[in-house]
Design a protein around this nucleic acid. Sequence first.
DNA 1: CGCCCATGGTTCAGTCAACGAACCGAAAGA
DNA 2: TCTTTCGGTTCGTTGACTGAACCATGGGCG
Lengths: 173, 173
Amino acid sequence: MALGKNYERQDCSFARALELLGERWTLLLVRDAFYGVRRYADFLAHLDIPRAVLAERLRTLTEAGVLARQRYSDNPPRHEYVLTARGRELWSVFFPLVQWGDRHLSTIGPRRLFAHATCDTLLEPTGTCGRCGRLVPPEEIEVRPGPGAQSDLRDDPVTQALRTPRRLLEPLF
Amino acid sequence: MALGKNYERQDCSFARALELLGERWTLLLVRDAFYGVRRYADFLAHLDIPRAVLAERLRTLTEAGVLARQRYSDNPPRHEYVLTARGRELWSVFFPLVQWGDRHLSTIGPRRLFAHATCDTLLEPTGTCGRCGRLVPPEEIEVRPGPGAQSDLRDDPVTQALRTPRRLLEPLF
DNA sequence: CGCCCATGGTTCAGTCAACGAACCGAAAGA
DNA sequence: TCTTTCGGTTCGTTGACTGAACCATGGGCG
C-alpha cells in the first residue's frame, strides 16, 4: 500500500502495525517468507518488485524485528532473510486473510491449501487442525497446491518449487 | 497503504485481498466501522483522512461488498456505511493484528481491551472468550479503554465516545 | 592475468496516488 | 435571506513507487 508513515495521530496498536506492515509489498514479503523464500534474488523473481523497494522493505522489516538477516556464506558474504518469532506470529494475521480472500475474491478456488503436517489434515478456517483440534503453528503446516493453482501466470523458480507440497518456513532452495 | 492495484501477476487470494484492503486508510476505515463509526463526517473527524480519499475508499469498499450504503434520512437524503457480513468476517484478521501490535509495538500497553460482553471476560489472543471458550463474533464483543488510552492525542467526538465501553458494530451516535 | 557471471544492492528520471485547501449543492433552521 | 450541516468534487503540490541502468564484491574458468 505504500502506506505513508504518518498515522502518528492514530495512536493505536492497529495503526502502528499498519504503519509497518501496511506498506505496499510488505505483507507479500512476509507471505513469501512463510513459503520459504529467503534470498533477495528469489523475492525479486517471485514478486516483480522494484529492487529499491525490496531493499528498503527488507531493511524496515529487519529493523522492526520481523525478519532477521543471517549470513549463510562468508566468501562471498551473503545474507538471507528469515522470519523471527515475532514474524512467525503474523501467521495468525496472514492465514485469516488468505481464507477471507479465498471465500470472497476467488473464482476458481483456493490456490494453496494448508494442512497440519503431522495429522495430514486440512486446517479449519480458525487455523486449528481438523483432526487433532489444536491451533497449529506455522512450523507444522504444509502448503499444497489447491484447485486454483492450475492457472499459473508465472514461472519463476519460487512458483515452480511451490508446485510440490512444502513445509512452511523451510528454505525453498 | 496506497497499495497500487497492480498485484495482478500475484494471482493469489492473499494478494487479491491486499489489492482491496491493503490500500492506505482502508483497514482503518474497517476498524472504525467495527467501533460503530458509520458516517462520512465521523470517519473524517476521527481519521484526518483527505476527503477525496475517504470518498473513494468508501466507494471501493461498498463495491466490494465490505460495507453497505444505507439511507438513514430522506430529507435531506443521507447515507451511512455499515459493515456487511463479509465485512464483519474481517474481525478474524483485525483482531490478531491488534494483538500483534499490542505485543510488539506498544510501550504503554493496549489502548483498547476487548471482552465477551455476555461473559464479561477478556478475549484470549486467539479471539476466544476466556470464560466460555467460544470463538466470539464481533456482535458480542465490548470495547473498553485499556491502560494505553491515557495518552489521547485527539479529541474528536468519536474518540470521546470510545472512552466509555461500547458494543462493537453498534452505532456510536 | 583477463573476462564473464551471480548476487545484492544504489541511483535517477518519470509517473501516479495522496495530501490538503478550496469550492460546491442540497436541505434545514433562524 | 443568511447560515450551518452533510457529503461530497476539484485541483495544484508533494512524495512514494516504478523500472531501467549502473555498480561493487567475489568467485570460476581459460
